[in-house]
């Protein structure tokens, strides 16, 4: 087994644990490279099926290419697709800086959707290498009623024994991609020939490394027009993946506070 085989096997194991131990679970689909890999892995774990709803919490501000991609593959991959809308931006705390406010809006949409469907758990495609507080996450991460993350007292997690016993009312985030890196995602996308949105490839010297809302996501300088070129670029770059995401940079603890409050 090579490295990608090992990563894949671990993710499949996580999917199957969650599906067996937790009732009423759904997957979050952000349409980006990570959640596409996540769907792919679910199909592997469940032999071609995705046996739970796949939900896009829509800000309405994604790139048109992303919506086109979503509509096509929700159908082609036979997903039980759900689209949930975020509340209008006017309803979100006006004192927040613009990007944080956008993120807070997404968190609010997420909470609303969880409430609506009474999901006990959500699969989310975050990775430890994306950002320093995500690096401290658990695979099975319990959340408070409102989705809050108590990062000061996380459960122990070892020997692939995850926390699967919860008092009623606990919400769980399950992270099947936590142990992957950005390069792993691309190498796997290449190996498995997983469809990908074109925005990730360079046009006029720029490409998106991470896709968020249109107004708060910026492309990076790049000449990579193929996946191998992206991988090559990532092996030497010293620019962090989320540098084009404004919400991370508004203050030292901006992202920590967003996450403590329930952001992915």
């Amino acid at each position: 087994m090579d490295r990608l085989d090992q990563l894949e096997s671990q993710s499949i194991y996580i999917f199957r644990e969650a599906f067996n131990r937790i009732e009423n679970i759904a997957m979050l689909w952000s349409l980006g490279k990570d959640s596409n890999v996540m769907i792919w892995l679910a199909r592997k774990a469940f032999f071609g099926h995705v046996p739970f709803p796949v939900m896009h919490v829509d800000t309405g501000k994604k790139f048109p290419e992303m919506y086109a991609f979503r509509d096509r593959y929700a159908d082609e991959w036979g997903l039980k697709f759900l689209r949930e809308e975020c509340p209008p931006i006017e309803e979100v705390d006006q004192s927040l800086p613009p990007a944080a406010r956008s993120a807070a809006r997404k968190t609010a949409g997420l909470k609303k959707a969880i409430e609506k469907y009474q999901f006990n758990a959500l699969f989310a495609g975050i990775r430890r290498d994306e950002e320093a507080t995500r690096a401290k996450e658990r695979v099975f991460s319990p959340r408070g009623q409102g989705g809050q993350w108590d990062f000061r007292d996380q459960p122990p997690e070892f020997w692939d024994q995850y926390k699967t016993d919860f008092p009623p009312g606990t919400h769980i985030r399950v992270h099947p991609l936590l142990h992957w890196t950005e390069v792993d995602i691309w190498a796997y996308t290449q190996r498995e020939q997983i469809p990908t949105i074109d925005l990730y490839f360079a046009k006029d010297g720029k490409r998106y490394r991470s896709l968020g809302d249109k107004d708060i996501t910026f492309p990076v300088d790049s000449t990579a027009t193929t996946i191998p070129e992206i991988i090559e670029e990532l092996r030497t770059t010293k620019i962090s993946e989320r540098s084009g995401r404004a919400m991370d940079h508004e203050s030292e603890d901006a992202f920590e506070r967003l996450r403590a409050d329930g952001y992915l």
Partner: peptide
């Protein structure tokens, strides 16, 4: 509509 092709040329 954005194209969703996958580029696989190996360099």
């Amino acid at each position: 509509m954005g194209e969703t092709n996958v580029k696989l040329a190996s360099i």
